[in-house]
C-alpha cells in the first residue's frame, strides 16, 4: 500500500515541480546542497574570542533561567554538586551515565551517593556531560548514548551539566560541524538535545512558569 502511495504522492510532486526524466540540473543542485551544507546568515553576536564567547554563553544561559558556575577542574565537581544540594536541603543523591570524562572523579570525599545508568523517573538529581554549547543563545548540546543517557536530561528535577569551557562555540552551525566530524557526514546519534534553560510552560493564561515536565532547575558547571 505504502509503495503505491509513495509513487502517487511523488508523481504529483514531480509534475508540480516540473521534474524531467533527466533532471540533471535539479539533481546537481540538491546533491550540492546536501554535500556542501552551506551556512546561511550567522549572527555576529556569538562570533567572539574564546573568553568573550564564554562570557556571552554564561550571560545568555542565565537569561534563560539556568544557573552557571565556573570551576577550575573536574575534581571540583563533587563539592559543587554536594554544596548545591545541601543548601537547598535536597537528598545527596545523583544519577549519572558512563561518560569517561567523569569516570575518574572521586565522589567519596562528599556525602553524595552516586548511581549509574538511565533514569527510571525516581531520581531527583542527575549529572550529564555536554558535548558543546552555543554562546549566541546560552544553549547546551547533549548527545545520547550510554555515556549520557537521554532520560537524565528530562526526568530528574535538578539537572547538573558539566561543560568544558573550550567546547563553547559561537553558533549552532559550529556544533553541527563538530557532530559531522565525530559521527561522519549524514550520520547522527539517536538523539541530540539542545537545552536552553530549565523546562517551562506558559499554557495557563500565558504566564511563564518554570518546571513543566522536564527539570525545574538547570545548573551548569563550566570547567576550565
Amino acid at each position: 500500500m505504502s509503495g503505491s502511495t509513495r509513487d502517487a504522492v511523488m508523481g504529483r510532486i514531480r509534475r508540480a515541480v516540473g521534474a524531467t526524466p533527466d533532471d540533471s540540473e535539479r539533481r546537481e543542485a540538491v546533491a550540492a546542497r546536501l554535500a556542501g551544507s552551506p551556512k546561511g546568515v550567522i549572527p555576529k553576536r556569538g562570533q567572539l574570542a574564546p573568553a568573550e564567547r564564554l562570557a556571552l554563553f554564561v550571560d545568555m544561559a542565565r537569561k534563560a533561567d539556568a544557573t552557571v558556575v565556573e570551576i577550575p577542574d573536574y575534581a571540583a565537581i563533587p563539592d559543587e554538586i554536594a554544596t548545591y544540594l545541601r543548601e537547598r536541603n535536597l537528598p545527596a543523591e545523583i544519577k549519572m551515565g558512563d561518560d569517561p570524562r567523569l569516570a575518574g572523579i572521586d565522589f567519596s570525599e562528599t556525602a553524595l551517593s552516586v548511581a549509574k545508568g538511565p533514569s527510571d523517573g525516581d531520581d531527583l538529581s542527575s549529572l550529564s556531560h555536554a558535548e558543546g554549547a552555543i554562546a549566541e543563545s546560552g544553549t547546551l548540546m547533549l548527545t545520547s548514548g550510554p555515556d549520557n543517557p537521554t532520560s537524565l536530561n528530562f526526568l530528574p528535577e535538578y539537572h547538573f551539566v558539566v561543560l568544558k569551557a573550550e567546547d563553547v562555540a559561537g553558533d549552532m552551525e559550529s556544533l553541527f560541524a563538530g557532530l559531522r566530524e565525530r559521527f561522519g557526514k549524514g550520520v547522527m546519534p539517536r538523539s541530540v538535545n539542545f537545552v536552553t534553560g530549565p523546562s517551562r510552560s506558559a499554557d495557563i493564561e500565558q504566564t511563564l512558569l518554570l518546571g513543566a515536565h522536564g527539570p525545574r532547575r538547570l545548573h551548569i558547571l563550566v570547567v576550565g
Binding site: K63, A64, R190, V195, R200
Partner: peptide
Amino acid sequence: QEMSVYTTLSTGPKRAEDRDG
C-alpha cells in the same frame, strides 16, 4: 524566546549500546 528550551533531533530507534530510547 531566543530559543525554545528543548530542540531535540531524533534519528532512528535505540542503538545497540543505548540504555534508553
